[in-house]
């Protein structure tokens, strides 16, 4: 059994329904393949650097788990097939950081709540072209007034 660090990017739709089922989604898939979850916590909810499957935002879960080396390939396939998982990353880890133990324990406590994801992750829509022509004529009549003032000032200086 090796120790692994896993990060999973989940669809906000799942997290909005219930953040605990979203968490158990990851735990179940690891356990199904003979893994043993040491810590798991909601790492962050943030805007994605680029849209994935039309999602602009997503929730990251960070986990440390023990698994047999040959179980990783099957675990990967499970996550690959699950449509609720947008991205995953599994790396070998030497130790579990102390901060992770505390934070994941704090998340298990009663009454711990997670702010619901903002409603900014609707599938991408084609932006309508902005009508710029309406603003252009308004600015034009002001321009001649400004020009008239300049020669008057110039004559006083001479």
């Amino acid at each position: 059994m090796n120790l692994y660090e896993g990060m999973f990017l989940l669809d906000n739709q799942v997290v909005r329904a219930d953040w605990k089922t979203a968490k158990s989604l990851v735990v179940d898939l690891i356990k199904k393949n003979g893994g043993e979850v040491v810590t798991i916590r909601r790492w962050d909810e943030r805007r994605l650097a680029y849209p994935i499957r039309g999602r602009r935002r997503g929730t990251y879960y960070l986990t440390y788990f023990k698994a047999a080396p040959n179980a990783i390939a099957t675990t990967r396939r499970e996550f690959e097939l699950d449509e609720r998982v947008l991205r995953y990353l599994m790396l070998r880890a030497e130790t579990v950081p102390d901060a992770e133990l505390e934070l994941s324990k704090a998340e298990l406590a009663e009454g711990f709540t997670v702010p619901p994801p903002p409603a900014d992750d609707e599938p991408l829509v084609v932006e309508e072209p902005v009508v710029a022509e309406e603003t252009a004529p308004e600015a034009a009549p002001d321009a001649p007034d400004a020009i008239e003032d300049v020669p008057a000032e110039a004559s006083t200086e001479v």
């Binding site: 990060m7 990017l9 943030r46 650097a49 680029y50 994935i52 997503g58 991205r87 990353l89």
Partner: peptide, 13 residues
């Protein structure tokens, strides 16, 4: 490269 894969950092912006 890992951060890019997880959409934490952009490939290009």
């Amino acid at each position: 490269k890992r951060a890019r894969h997880m959409a934490l950092m952009p490939f290009v912006s």
